[in-house]
Design a protein around this nucleic acid. Structure first.
Lengths: 151, 151
DNA sequence: CTACGTGCAAACCATTTGCGACACC
DNA sequence: GGTGTCGCAAATGGTTTGCACGTAG
């Protein structure tokens, strides 16, 4: 029922030390709340869960630490796309390459990707209408900068 | 340089009539601004562009009509994911099925999709690090309702 | 001991809503 | 002529920031 999270918590502490992040009680409880969540928790949801253990915690602290964790690669977000609404001006079917650094969106023609094949049935009761592939990577500008830094 | 947009505008008018939407000057100019935009315009960007032709237009009008167009399927958005931040509690590689109706997110195991193959080189200068497939469709709950409505 | 992290409140930004005036059909 | 749309301003929701205090290293 309740899996033992200690190994993941130990890993978390190690990675915090590596990243030079202070190990606070709040951070441990926030990370634990992400591990305990199902699906795709929101900052609010994490906050509600952490509050059970640290009633005095502030929502701002949760937000600040989620941001810190994202930057350190300790947690991932569901999508890289800007929170703000963006429209498609390209009416044709196509795919997206999203820059992990500056979040620029580059279109890839629909036929530049071979048709995607499902190996199993989709989850029971679901209906699939269409799909598009979301590539994550670096746009030309950020690729140049990063290469320089790595060299 | 400047493609003739009249055919698309005519199509737009037809689809507005079909959908029972009044054909106002504002709507025509907003739609035209989307057609004229490159890439992935924001509501603000559309607003700026429309203001050149209708200086008195309100940002709220642009938002209201973008929403109307989205609901009527006249324009598309870059991603169906909630604007708000969502974290991954599933640390394994996986794909997403997003419900076009209620926007629920369902995870699909990484190995339930055959590896995606690129048919051509990615755009020059880009670096691809990883990808995931975003399926659009209906979650079990919405699939049931929609089938009923269609029957 | 000192830099970093926390809690609170206020600020911010994108988006939505309420409402009176106006225009399409 | 009546319903749908517009413009304005105020409200909302999610997220960030400034600052004084507290704590990890």
């Amino acid at each position: 029922m309740r899996p033992n999270l200690e190994p993941q918590m130990e890993e978390f502490r190690r990675r915090c030390r590596e990243a030079g992040l202070a190990l606070t009680h709040q951070r441990e409880m926030i990370y634990r709340a992400v591990l305990e969540s199902e699906g795709h928790p929101s900052p609010e949801g994490i906050y509600e869960r952490v509050k059970r253990r640290i009633p005095a915690i502030s929502l701002a602290t949760v937000y600040k630490n989620i941001r810190t964790f994202l930057e350190a690669g300790l947690v991932k977000e569901v999508t890289l796309h800007h929170g703000a609404l963006r429209l498609e001006s390209n009416p044709a079917e196509h795919h997206h390459l999203v820059c992990v650094r500056c979040r620029a969106i580059i279109d890839l023609d629909g036929d530049s990707v071979a048709p995607v094949r499902l190996r199993r049935k989709p989850p029971a009761g679901c209906r699939i209408l269409r799909y598009s592939v979301e590539f994550q990577g670096l746009c030309p500008g950020c690729a140049r900068k990063t290469t320089r830094n790595l060299s």
